[in-house]
């Protein structure tokens, strides 16, 4: 199957039920990426273990926005173009993602509210490490078939 076919098979439709689980994305918090110029270079908490320790961190931490980007990738896989118009994404960074942790994203459809010819879906989203410790929690709202 092509990439497009795979993604089309994942798309949330009007018929997708409450309780539907999105397919996870898995990423490693790689120190070289965390400290790249566009991401965390301006703040050594994101890449320097010495500086991070002086601020009480056990290791450098990812910028929260990297976690949001992972969650957004999962949502784009499932909502496609609908994720780019009149969508909402709320994220709270409840714990720091430490260098070298492997992060897995999750999503479960919580609610679908009739809207126009379709529904506005509300999906609980979160990311956690391999020990199951939650790092980011939130939700997205996306119009489907409206």
């Amino acid at each position: 199957m092509s990439r497009t076919d795979v993604l089309n098979s994942l798309l949330v439709t009007r018929d997708t039920p409450v309780g539907y689980k999105l397919q996870s994305i898995k990423k490693k918090a790689v120190i070289q990426l965390m400290g790249s110029r566009l991401w965390g270079r301006f703040n050594p908490n994101h890449w320097d273990p010495v500086y991070a320790a002086t601020t009480g961190l056990s290791a450098p931490i990812q910028t929260g926005e990297m976690s949001s980007a992972y969650l957004a990738e999962m949502c784009v896989n499932h909502f496609g173009a609908q994720m780019f118009s009149n969508a909402r994404m709320v994220c709270k960074y409840v714990a720091s993602t430490l260098a070298n942790e492997v992060i897995v994203t999750h999503g479960v459809v919580r609610e679908k509210t009739p809207k126009g010819n379709g529904f506005r879906f509300t999906v609980d989203i979160w990311s956690e490490n391999e020990a199951g410790e939650k790092k980011t929690v939130g939700w997205v709202e996306v119009d489907v078939g409206v």
Binding site: G64, E65, S68, N86, A87, R88, M89, C91
Partner: peptide, 8 residues
């Protein structure tokens, strides 16, 4: 950064 509520 600790929280964002974003409308796309």
């Amino acid at each position: 950064h600790t929280f964002h509520d974003s409308e796309i």
